[in-house]
Structure formats: structure tokens, C-alpha cells
Computed example of a mutant assay.
Amino acid sequence: MKKRRFGKTDVMVSEISLGTWQLGSKWGDPFDAKVAQETLEGATAQDINCYDTADVYQGGASEEAIGQYIKTLDEKPFVITKTGRRLNPHVAEGYNEENIRYFIDDSRKRLDVESLDMVLLHCPPTDVYYNPDVFKLLDTLKEEGKITHYGVSIEKVEEGLKAMEYEGVAAIEVIFNMFRLRPLELLFEQAKKNDVAIIVRVPLASGLLTGKYTKKTTFSPGDHRTFNRNGEAFDKGETFSGVDYELGLEAVEELKKVFPNQNLAQIALRWILMFDAVSTVIPGASKAEHIISNAEAAELPPLTKKQMKAVEDIYNKYIKDPVHYLW
């Protein structure tokens, strides 16, 4: 597995890392510790040295499983965890010292570490980015040795640009894929200028870019692809990247013509790796075999200029209006 520099942290991370929203389960299914263990072992076998988790994933079980697993390894992976979504209601006022300290200490306990490698604010309300006290607190937590690095997971490009005004921000996690091109316009440029790592999440548009779904595909009631298509539970951009499902299927059929007889999921990951602002991509996996397929994407040859232009043309025709302007 090739490694990339993780911005100003100077840590070298695998190009393809492991997103653990689904660790030990499929969306909407109960957590299974055995499946989680097998998935993490599969990541190690593919030389993946970076995991992305959050305190709300599987009610904390994702962090606990990772914490237990990394104790069995000689070389410790770089663990990114996110904080803030346990707030109910999830409002800017909740991002205060008492709550953040409580959440950070809880994550330290579940991961069983003195210092968290990287903490990201977990898609906080936009007003949080305009509150310097939040970022001063994160600086204090670094000084206290409770966290080593920090950054933000964002919904909107605007939030990432604002976050980079704070010198301590070392990483930005953002949705970026063949159906979400806006980060290319300014965010990536500024991230490179400020030496801020870019973590790409939702790289397969909630599975839409695997090319395996049809109009007849159904998802379980507990799957966000069933209940959040219009943002009923959280930002709709998290589900299919905010793309209308049936329109997305049309665009996928066009992509298949550009990449005939190829694994579209792997192509979608390789497309993201064409951009040097990207430090790592975090596709999720609910089975070890998914990890093997994801890792193989990094070994594919670079896409041609013609192929890259074709992807852009499909985006402009099917996706850009209105998705481009919402996030």
C-alpha cells in the first residue's frame, strides 16, 4: 500500500484507509464483534495503517473494537476519531468546554489511549467555525496531552475554508467523489497552501458508485439510504452525496460506458487518488473482502486525461445542478 503525507502532522498514512461507520455490521444491523475483528485484521493484511471512527459509531463499539485490536499490533495505526454528534440537540452552544472535555475523555477510555492521534469535530453547525474559543480549547487539550492533532469534518466547503484560519487545524474530512466535485474549486488549493491533510469520506456516494444498485434495490429500514434521502435525520448530503437516487443511477450507467467491464468502485477510488491534495480515502467495509477490493484500487494505473474529462462531463450533465451549489 502506498503512503501519503498527512499534512502538517508529517505522519505517513495509507492512501486507502478504513472508514468504520459500518465496522462490525451493515447499516442498521446490530454490532458484531467477530466481524469487526475480521475487518480490522483484513485492513492490517492490506497494509492499511489509518482508521477513521467516531464516538457515535455503533454507540461507541467501533472505538472500543479498534482500541482492543490495536493493542495486538506491533506497529500502531493512526486513528482518527470524531466528536460532537452525541450532543442532543446538536447545536453550536453544545460545543463548550464541559461537553468537549467529556467526549474526549470518553473516546480516550474506549480507545484505551493517553492521547488521541487525531480528533475531528464531527460536522458541527456552521456557527462553531466562527467561535475561536472552541479551537483554543482544542489547542489546550493538545498542550495537556489528551489529543495529538485535531481538525474538522465538514459538510460545506465554506466551513473548511473558515476552519483553515485556525493554525491548529491539521486535517479536513470532506465528501468528495465523482458526484461531488466542488472541493476541487478552492478547498483543495487552500489545503495544500496551508499544509492541511484532506481525508475523503463518502467516496462511493453511499454505494451508488459501486454500480451495483438498480431501481429495484431496497435497503433495510435502519439504513440511512432508506430514511435520510431528503435529510430527515441528518444532512442529506451524507446519503448518496445528496444526489437524487434515480438520477444517480442514470449517471452511473454513463460512467459504465466510460469504464466498460471494470470494477466501478475501484475506478471511483482511483479517480480520487488522482488529486494530490488528498491524503487518504476512507471507504467503509462491512466484510474483509471489501477491504481487499478497496486496497486494489490504489494499484490501478492512473486514469487518462480523456477519462477524467468524461467523468467531469457526466457530472456537469447529470449532477452539478443543484448538488454543486448546496455544499
Results as ranks from 00 to 15, higher is better:
190 Q>T: 08
211 G>T: 03
212 K>F: 08
217 T>D: 03
185 E>C: 00
149 H>Y: 15
189 E>Y: 10
152 V>R: 08
217 T>M: 04
192 K>C: 12
154 I>G: 13
150 Y>N: 09
223 D>Y: 01
223 D>P: 01
211 G>Y: 06
172 I>F: 08
211 G>W: 06
183 P>C: 01
207 G>A: 02
155 E>K: 12
159 E>V: 07
221 P>E: 07
200 V>I: 02
199 I>A: 08
223 D>R: 01
154 I>E: 12
221 P>L: 02
217 T>F: 06
198 I>Y: 07
193 K>Q: 13
199 I>G: 05
192 K>G: 13
203 P>C: 00
146 K>W: 13
190 Q>A: 06
215 K>N: 11
207 G>D: 02
181 L>W: 01
186 L>A: 09
194 N>R: 15
156 K>N: 15
177 N>K: 03
206 S>E: 01
149 H>F: 15
205 A>E: 05
168 G>M: 09
146 K>Y: 13
201 R>H: 07
218 T>A: 09
169 V>S: 03
186 L>C: 04
218 T>N: 10
220 S>T: 15
193 K>W: 05
182 R>A: 03
183 P>D: 01
166 Y>N: 04
201 R>C: 02
180 R>A: 09
209 L>V: 01
220 S>P: 11
214 T>A: 02
202 V>W: 01
175 I>S: 13
166 Y>F: 13
224 H>R: 11
208 L>R: 02
157 V>M: 11
170 A>I: 04
161 L>H: 07
162 K>C: 10
184 L>F: 00
201 R>N: 08
155 E>R: 11
192 K>S: 12
213 Y>F: 14
206 S>N: 00
214 T>S: 14
221 P>D: 06
200 V>H: 05
173 E>N: 12
151 G>F: 09
195 D>Q: 13
163 A>E: 14
162 K>G: 08
222 G>A: 05
197 A>P: 07
203 P>M: 00
207 G>I: 02
165 E>A: 14
167 E>R: 12
159 E>C: 10
195 D>S: 14
217 T>E: 03
158 E>R: 15
210 T>L: 10
147 I>E: 11
200 V>S: 04
206 S>A: 04
155 E>P: 05
163 A>I: 14
215 K>A: 14
186 L>F: 02
168 G>F: 06
193 K>L: 11
210 T>R: 10
150 Y>C: 08
178 M>D: 06
157 V>W: 04
149 H>V: 09
220 S>K: 14
154 I>A: 12
168 G>H: 08
165 E>C: 11
191 A>H: 01
199 I>M: 12
151 G>W: 10
164 M>R: 02
222 G>N: 06
177 N>C: 04
213 Y>Q: 10
224 H>T: 13
179 F>M: 10
182 R>Q: 04
171 A>I: 02
158 E>W: 12
145 G>D: 12
217 T>A: 03
204 L>C: 03
220 S>H: 11
174 V>Q: 11
191 A>I: 00
173 E>R: 11
155 E>Q: 13
190 Q>I: 04
153 S>H: 09
159 E>K: 10
190 Q>C: 03
224 H>S: 11
223 D>K: 00
211 G>V: 03
145 G>F: 10
179 F>K: 03
210 T>C: 10
194 N>L: 10
173 E>M: 12
181 L>V: 06
168 G>E: 09
221 P>F: 00
176 F>C: 09
163 A>L: 15
198 I>T: 08
222 G>M: 04
212 K>P: 08
222 G>H: 05
